[in-house]
Nucleic acid binder design. Structure first.
Lengths: 292, 292
DNA sequence: GTTCCGCATGAATCGATAG
DNA sequence: ACTATCGATTCATGCGGAA
C-alpha cells in the first residue's frame, strides 16, 4: 500500500478550485501569520488578513468532507504594546461562512523565543483552532491516548532531576520520543493542551512546527488511506508526516524554492513500500532524512 | 501597616458606581461564565453575555488607575458541539470602550479531572485576558521570576534532598550562604503560560481558581499598599490572597450567603469601616489606609 | 558507549534611529 | 506624525566535540 502525495505550485486560492468537493478528510495548515515571514511571503497586513484569508477558507469549506476537520495553526502578534485582533475576527467571519468553531487547542511551546520587555513576557503558546462543517465528524480518540496514572508516577519517582524534566513532556501529552516504552500501561485521553518544543537546531530540516504536531492531529482525525490537505505547505512537514502515516496528502505552495525542495524530498519515498512497524523510532530518523 | 479589605453586597454594576475614579491598581476577577452556575447567578445567556458585561467593564475602566491592569479569567464553554463566541466578541467590544487588549495568558489546569466526550477532550485551559487603560502600566516582573531549566538541571541534580530544602528556606529567610549571587543568573522570566493545579478538595467553598492564580497576578501587577478589586468576589479568594500579601482590596458579591462567608473569613479589623457615601469628595484612600 | 559542555538558533518585541 | 529598519534583549533545545 502506498500513500499518494500530490504537490501543487501556486496560490492556494486558485489551486484549491481544482480540488473536488467533499474530498478531503483533514486540513492541517499554518498559514503565514500577519506581518511575519515578510522576506519570503511578502507579509500580509493585519488589517487585511481576514479579507485575504476568507476566499481561501471558503474553498477549504467546499473541499472538506462533511465528516472532516480543519485545524488552523495561528497566533496573533503583539505590536506597540497591543495584540492584534485579526485572529479572533477571523473566527467570527469563518462562522458566517458556515464553519463551526468546535474547539481551540493550545500548543504550549516550551522553548519559546527569548527576550525581555518592560510590559510583557515571552509568548509561549499558539492557537490550534478546530473548525468543522458538521457537528458529526470523525475523531479517533483512542489513537492519541497517553500513558498516565500510578505506573507513570511510580516510574518518575526513581528518575533523576534531569530525566524528570525531560520526561515531563512525555507525561503531559504524549509527545515524547520513546513513547513505545509506555505502551500497554495505563492509558488516558489527553487534554486540549499540547506540550511540545519547536525544533530549532535541527539541521536536516527547519519547519514552522515540529513533526509531532501534524502527527497528533492526523492520528486524531484520520485513518489510513484518508486524505490530508495543507494549502500552505512550506517545508512540507504536514505532507511528509501524512505520507509516513499512510495517508494520502495534497500540498500547495506558492514559493517555487519550497515547492522544489518538498518535491525532491517526497517523490522518492512515494514509490517506496512503507513498513508500518518502523515508524517513530529515533534510529529511523537518520534513515529517512538524507535525500538521495 | 494593615491592608484594608472592603466588602460590598450588591450588584457589581451598581456598587462600582460608588468607587472613585482612578483608584484601583489591579482588577482580578472571574465572572460567572455564561449559562453556568445557574443556581447561584441565575445564568446569563451566552447571547446576552456581552450586553450584560459591558456596563460593568465601563465602570471598571473608570475606577482603574491609568497605570493599572485588568485581568479577566474566563473561558467560553462548548454548547451543542460548538464553542460560544461571547468571549472573543467581548474582547472586541471592550476595545471599543477604550480598553487595550495587551495580552492573553493561558492558565493550564494540570489537575482538572478526567473526562471525555465523543467529540472533544477534557478542557484543560482557561484564558486570562489582560486589559489596560494605557500602554504604560506598572509591571513588577522580578516578583514572579522562576528557576531556569539549566538551574534545575545543573544545580539541583547534584544536591542532596536536604540541600534542596535548606536552600529553599534560605531564599525566603535571607540566612545562610548568599545565594543571591547566582540566583539572579539562574532565574528566568516566566512566559505567558501558567502551570497551576486546581485545588479541588478544599473546605466547603468551591473556588473558581486556586489561590496561586490571583497571587501570581497580584505579585506581578501590584506592590504592597496597592489596591486590588474583584467585582465578582465569590468565595473571596482574590481578597483573601490580597490581604495576606498586604494589598488593600475591594470585593463585590451579589449573593448574601457568599458575602457573609467571606466577611466572616476575613479579619474583622480589616473589613472594618466602610463608608459607602464617601465617594467623590475627599480622597478616602489615604484616610482608610492606616487603621490599627 | 556515556556524560558533559559549548554553541548556534528560533512564527519575538520594543525602543531608537533614519527616511 | 508615520512607516521601515536595526540593535538589544533572552532561554530551551539539540547537535557535535571533548573528557
Amino acid at each position: 500500500m502506498v500513500a499518494q502525495t500530490e504537490l501543487h505550485l501556486g496560490d492556494a486560492k486558485d489551486v484549491l478550485k481544482n480540488i473536488p468537493d467533499n474530498s478531503v478528510d483533514l486540513i492541517f495548515t499554518s498559514p503565514p501569520y500577519a506581518d511575519q515571514r515578510k522576506k519570503s511571503y511578502g507579509g500580509i497586513n493585519p488589517d487585511q488578513y481576514v479579507e485575504w484569508f476568507l476566499p481561501i477558507s471558503e474553498q477549504l469549506l467546499r473541499v472538506l468532507k462533511t465528516t472532516g476537520t480543519f485545524v488552523l495553526n495561528i497566533k496573533e502578534k503583539a505590536a506597540n504594546g497591543e495584540r492584534s485582533i485579526y485572529v479572533i475576527e477571523l473566527i467570527l467571519e469563518m462562522r458566517k461562512q458556515g464553519w463551526i468553531w468546535t474547539e481551540e487547542f493550545i500548543w504550549h511551546k516550551k522553548n519559546s523565543y527569548p527576550g525581555k520587555w518592560p510590559n510583557r513576557f515571552r509568548d509561549a503558546w499558539e492557537r490550534l483552532i478546530q473548525f468543522n462543517k458538521n457537528k458529526k465528524f470523525h475523531m479517533y480518540q483512542e489513537a492519541v491516548m497517553v500513558p498516565t496514572g500510578s505506573w507513570a508516577r511510580g516510574r518518575l519517582k526513581n528518575l533523576s532531576e534531569t530525566d524528570k524534566i525531560r520526561d515531563e513532556s512525555k507525561v503531559g501529552s504524549g509527545f515524547g520520543k520513546n513513547i513505545s516504552n509506555w505502551v500497554n500501561r495505563e492509558m488516558a485521553y489527553p487534554t486540549n493542551v499540547l506540550h511540545l518544543s519547536t525544533e530549532c537546531a535541527n539541521k536536516n530540516h527547519s519547519a514552522a512546527f515540529p513533526e509531532s504536531l501534524p502527527e497528533w492531529f492526523i492520528k486524531l482525525f484520520t485513518k489510513k488511506g484518508d486524505t490530508v490537505l495543507d494549502p500552505f505547505m512550506g517545508s512540507g512537514t504536514t505532507n511528509l508526516v501524512a505520507q509516513r502515516m499512510m495517508r494520502n496528502s495534497i500540498g500547495i505552495e506558492i514559493i517555487p524554492e519550497y515547492y522544489k525542495i518538498v518535491k525532491k524530498k517526497l517523490n522518492p519515498v512515494q514509490t517506496y513500500l512503507f513498513e508500518p512497524n518502523n515508524k517513530y523510532g529515533k534510529n529511523n530518523k537518520k534513515k529517512r532524512l538524507p535525500i538521495r
